[in-house]
Design a protein around this nucleic acid. Structure first.
Length: 603
RNA sequence: GCUGCUGUAGCUCAGUGGUGGAGCACGUCCUUGGUAAGGACGAGGUCAUGGGUUCAAAUCCCAUCAGCAGCUCCA
């Protein structure tokens, strides 16, 4: 082991003299130092190629790094290649990273002289008296460090893409050009990462949705509006059936409500004031203004209020697969994961204040049950609360909010679930527990949510008669346990890469007659299986059995049932399972028994 | 919405300022084949839409629409 001193004075032990020129490459920190240095080298390359470029910031991120540039010239893919080449040149030059420190004022002057307004702004925000710079050759950058010793240490890197990014993430600030890249200690690691990106692309629900004929979007229909094809609709239908059954088992009833309602309803609910930017313009109906619903809650309230409710009836758990429409800016739409029209697996629970905690627990358990039923075992939980000093964004009194927030916290703590507290992420009417599931690229999407609401009951004067004979205000819980059908199915597709378990697969099995002579038997078999509620197709196409197997496999059908002379003679099917390949012949009864079990156990 | 990129057959994608191609899919015929692609022939396109430049535009320019990546938003 060799002890080396890094440029910022930190001592570090390294295995050998070669590695000692930098860091060991063994830790996450080492990788971050390497990537951050790569960002500097990239900035140097861009400065060489585009003199006068204004430098923004260049941090490391989960899988690499980026650097933001203020530049008139629009960067293209070809520019990335040139920048990569220039970076390679800088690496070959093996320049030293040198650290210098300057008093704040001198640093500001220096950056002003270099024509770097963003850096000036950054230094002005730094609290300390001195700031540090790192330079390679004539390139200087404001930086805390640490860095690798010499540019030559960077061996494996790749620039990935260019995108716009607002300076300091503020929409009102100028937009800079951000170049994303990544760096690793070994070529093998880079290739592994690129492989991951490739695999993620194959899991993309938009691609699989097209390949498996599940859904489509149409320029003629409008962006963010989903068209469910028979197979996608089949999946959605069975998920919804499962959802309904599980809700009935837990004491829920279900509702149906209209898609539009008069504007006054939305004024009373507060949506018109607090949610308008997500709502579509009013529709004129005989001189009255109607609004396409962005949420289902006011409808449940109206139904609740059709009669007087006793505390003895509560809690009322009213579910609804309610389709809502929200205006989303065009740039945020993303396949099924972010759409403009979607069906929430909504429910509204009307309860007394002392029932609240128990109801939240029940919903948490149901959400966990639903997610695990569909194979999701990893998700992140957030407690979304009000932001400080943003009162105008929310309805209702402070004490009411605190009460609601507390109820959610207690439920999470009782279940022992780890969560992150998210300031400023609450809905306008109340705090929430939000559960996020990840897509193939690891991006999180909000699915289930549990929201406590003391405000709508107040606005609509929603009451129950207590044991004391007086009227009391109910507490409402808004919740989804999947999120929305569109987003959930999008995530589901990526989770399974389209290779669904038998109970969810849109087509569970396909019968493949070997020749035309076997079609009759195949059809009879299909009718039998259909009558037992299996989702089964029959491939009567004029093709060899190999070809039919290939097609069925590409469509990720769980079972291919091959029937020929032998099977007809024995009343059997030859089973080829997607997971296990050719399993040989079994009797039809045996096969049915096996798949019944597989479906029941949701394997 | 913003920045950059993209839009050619049902799908995946080549392509050039001078009358549009491939593979797969589809149709017909031949073939009746036992666990991942049998063969022949055929049909299919206002080259996203609308303008402009040009003798001539799918190709160059502008706008619009839609998609992709990211930012912002949603929270």
């Amino acid at each position: 082991m060799v002890k080396v001193t890094l440029p910022d004075g930190i001592e570090k032990e390294c295995k050998d003299t070669l590695a000692a020129s930098v860091v060991t490459g063994n830790t996450k920190e080492d990788l971050e130092i390497l990537r951050h240095s790569a960002a500097h080298i990239m900035a140097q390359a861009v400065s060489r190629l585009f003199p006068g470029v204004k430098l923004g910031i260049g941090p490391t991120i989960e899988n690499g790094f980026y650097y933001d540039f203020g530049l008139q010239h629009g960067l293209s893919e070809e520019d990335l290649k040139k920048i990569e080449e220039e970076m390679s040149r800088i690496i070959r030059e093996d320049l030293a990273f040198e650290r210098t420190e300057l008093p704040r004022d001198a640093a500001i002057k220096k950056m002003e002289a270099l024509g770097q307004p963003f850096k000036v702004e950054l230094i002005k925000d730094i609290g300390s008296d001195t700031v540090s710079f790192y330079s390679q050759d004539d390139f200087v950058d404001l930086c805390r460090g640490p860095h690798i010793h010499r540019t030559g240490t960077l061996k494996v890197f790749k620039l990935l893409n260019v995108a716009g990014a607002y300076w300091r993430g503020k929409e009102t600030n100028p937009m800079l050009q951000r170049i994303y890249g990544t760096a690793f200690f070994t070529q093998a690691e880079l290739e592994k990462y690129l492989k991951f990106l490739e695999e993620a692309e194959k899991r993309d629900h938009r691609k699989i949705g097209k390949d498996l004929d599940l859904f489509s979007f149409h320029e003629e229909g409008g962006p963010g509006l989903t068209f469910w094809h028979p197979k996608g609709a089949r999946m959605r239908n069975l998920i919804e059936n499962f959802w309904r059954e599980e809700h009935f088992k837990r004491g829920y009833e279900i509702l149906y409500s209209p898609h539009i309602a008069k504007i006054n309803l939305w004024k009373t609910s507060g949506h018109w004031n607090f949610y308008r930017e997500s709502m579509y313009s009013p529709i004129d109906v005989e001189g009255q203004e109607y609004i396409l619903k962005p949420m289902n809650c006011p409808f449940a309230v109206l139904m609740y209020k059709t009669k007087l409710h006793s505390y003895r009836e509560l809690p009322l758990r009213w579910g609804e697969l309610g389709t809502v429409y929200r205006y989303e800016r065009s740039g945020v739409l993303h396949g099924l994961l972010r759409v403009r029209g979607f069906t929430q697996d909504d429910a509204h629970i009307f309860c007394t204040p002392d029932q609240l905690e128990n109801e939240i627990l029940g919903v948490l358990e149901l959400a966990q049950f639903m997610l695990s039923s569909f194979g999701f075992h990893e998700y992140e939980i957030e407690l979304s609360v009000r932001g400080k000093g943003e009162k105008e964004k929310y309805i209702g009194r402070d004490d009411v909010w605190d009460h609601a927030e507390n109820a959610l916290k207690i439920a999470l703590d009782k279940k022992g679930l780890p969560y992150t507290r998210m300031e400023g992420e609450a809905k306008f009417y109340g705090p929430a527990i939000d559960i996020k599931v990840r897509d193939a690229l690891g991006r999180g999407w909000q699915g289930p949510t549990i929201q406590v609401d003391f405000n709508l009951p107040e606005r609509f004067d929603v009451k129950y008669v207590g044991s004391d004979g007086f009227h009391h205000q109910v507490v409402m819980v808004h919740r989804t346990v999947l999120g929305a059908m569109e987003r959930f199915i999008g995530c589901l597709i990526e989770h399974y890469a389209g290779d669904f378990p038998l109970w969810i697969a849109p087509i569970q099995m396909r019968i493949l007659p070997i020749t035309d002579a076997h079609i009759e038997y195949a059809k009879k078999l299909q009718a039998l299986l259909l009558s037992k509620s299996f989702r089964v197709e029959c491939d009567t196409g004029n093709a060899k059995i190999n070809y039919k197997i290939r097609e069925g496999s590409l469509e990720k059908i769980p079972y291919l049932l091959i029937v020929g002379d032998k099977e007809i003679q024995d009343g059997a099917v030859s089973v080829r399972s997607r997971r296990k390949g050719n399993e040989g012949a079994v009797s039809v009864e045996e096969f049915i028994k096996n798949i019944d079990a597989e479906i029941r156990e949701k394997r």
